[in-house]
């Protein structure tokens, strides 16, 4: 049984017929070809697949695409305005908040949501906000610096 869904991704409405078991992460990557959203652990822990669903950060490997029917999704591809990066993206660039880059899209999407909830986070609050995002390279220092820089730029 296929189900027809319409999901607005980065401002564009997409209609597709999908199997109910298709995960949102696979819908974004395989159906819409938006491969910025990464799949790391596939067990709801690493956060590489984080996107915004109706403005809230979610792990897209733990949401069925059919659950997003009628919703608005923002992926990492939807953050920049032309050549102009968001504060968080610019922060990761300036502070070198990555090494291999695999976790980066999820880190950025979580950081965007975190700063929306709390525009002035302490270092401790940034670290707590990243509890659901794993980085296996950096030791997190530059990621925390990048989000701090983004918060400062947003003030």
């Amino acid at each position: 049984m296929s189900t027809e869904i319409t999901v607005t991704v980065n401002g564009t409405a997409h209609t597709a017929s999908v199997e109910p078991r298709l995960l949102l992460a696979h819908f974004l990557r395989d159906v819409l070809d938006l491969t910025g959203t990464h799949i790391g652990c596939d067990t709801s822990q690493c956060g590489a697949c984080t996107v915004h669903l109706n403005g809230e950060a979610v792990k897209s490997c733990t949401v069925f695409a059919v659950q997003a029917n009628g919703s608005e999704v923002t992926t990492v591809e939807g953050l920049a305005d032309g050549d102009s990066y968001s504060h968080v993206q610019q922060g990761f660039w300036d502070e070198h908040g990555l090494q291999c880059g695999f976790c980066t899209p999820g880190m950025i999407m979580t950081a965007e949501a975190l700063l929306k909830q709390n525009p002035n986070p302490s270092e401790e609050e940034i670290r707590a906000g990243l509890a659901g995002n794993y980085c296996r390279c950096t030791g997190y220092q530059n990621i925390v610096n990048a989000i701090g820089a983004a918060a400062k730029a947003g003030r």
Partner: peptide
């Protein structure tokens, strides 16, 4: 509970 993303859902 878990993390920010899980608490949203």
């Amino acid at each position: 509970v878990a993390d920010l993303q899980v608490r949203n859902r």
